[in-house]
Amino acid sequence: MERPLPDDLITKAASIRLLALDVDGIMTDGRLYFTAQGDELKAFNILDGHGIKQLRRSGIEVAVITGRSSPLTARRARDLGIQHVYQGREDKEAALRELLSELNISNEAAAYMGDDLPDLGAIMLAGLGISVPNGHWYVREQADYCTEAAGGEGAVREICDLILQAQNKLADLHLTYHSGGATDGA
């Protein structure tokens, strides 16, 4: 059974052709972990990864736009088949504008998910701006939607499911798992 969603949210999500994601605080819990040798560690949520794969299989582009540069982010994007990766981009609105131009997608057909003030311009530009409950209060107030799940704890999957539900693709996708037809990991 699909969950009830507000009509205005369904309308916005129904037209989404691109989901652009911040990394730290969205795809991760926002903490930075370093070893004694200075190596960076990140923990990504497997539920989020599977949701991203489902979106891509359904014809929706997925991108990463992050202010930090990390080989771990590049690897996770590669593992998930995300082709559009913008690292080291402090001006996320400008990066999103470039991506929309490159893909010939209108801002109304884009969703952007971020948690802090550097994400605000991209959230405001996108047709569907999304934040998380562990995000900055001002960003949450400006977003069209704030997930129930926290960043790094299934928030991306929540949005993937929401978009697929609004586009009437989620129920059929779920049925493919009843028959054992879809089994790839994330």
Rank of each mutant, 00 (worst) to 15 (best):
G59I: 07
I60G: 03
E61A: 15
V62N: 01
V62S: 00
A63I: 07
V64D: 02
V64Q: 03
V64W: 05
V64T: 06
I65F: 00
I65S: 02
I65V: 09
I65A: 01
T66R: 11
T66M: 10
G67R: 12
G67S: 13
G67V: 13
R68A: 12
R68N: 14
S69H: 13
S70N: 04
S70M: 05
P71M: 03
L72P: 00
L72Y: 03
A74P: 02
R76G: 02
R78L: 04
D79L: 13
D79T: 10
D79H: 12
D79V: 06
I82F: 05
Q83D: 13
H84L: 05
V85S: 01
V85E: 01
V85I: 10
Y86M: 05
Q87A: 08
E90C: 09
E90W: 15
D91F: 07
K92I: 10
K92Y: 09
K92A: 06
E93K: 15
E93A: 14
E93M: 14
A95D: 07
A95N: 00
L96M: 12
R97M: 12
R97T: 15
R97S: 14
E98L: 08
E98G: 06
E98V: 00
L99V: 02
L100N: 09
S101Q: 15
S101E: 13
S101Y: 09
S101K: 14
E102G: 06
E102C: 05
L103S: 11
L103T: 07
N104L: 00
N104D: 14
N104E: 14
I105H: 05
I105L: 15
S106L: 05
N107Q: 15
N107E: 13
E108G: 04
A109S: 14
A110D: 01
A111W: 02
M113A: 00
G114E: 03
D115Y: 08
L117H: 10
P118R: 10
P118G: 08
P118T: 08
D119F: 04
D119M: 05
D119G: 05
L120E: 09
L120R: 11
I123S: 04
I123H: 06
M124T: 15
M124D: 09
L125K: 10
A126N: 01
A126S: 13
G127A: 05
G127H: 09
L128Q: 06
L128D: 04
L128S: 05
G129N: 09
G129Y: 02
G129R: 08
S131R: 02
S131T: 00
P133D: 11
P133E: 12
N134I: 09
N134Y: 06
H136I: 10
W137T: 09
Y138K: 07
Y138C: 10
Y138G: 14
Y138E: 12
V139D: 00
V139H: 01
V139K: 00
V139G: 01
R140E: 07
R140K: 15
E141I: 07
Q142L: 12
Q142H: 14
A143F: 02
A143V: 06
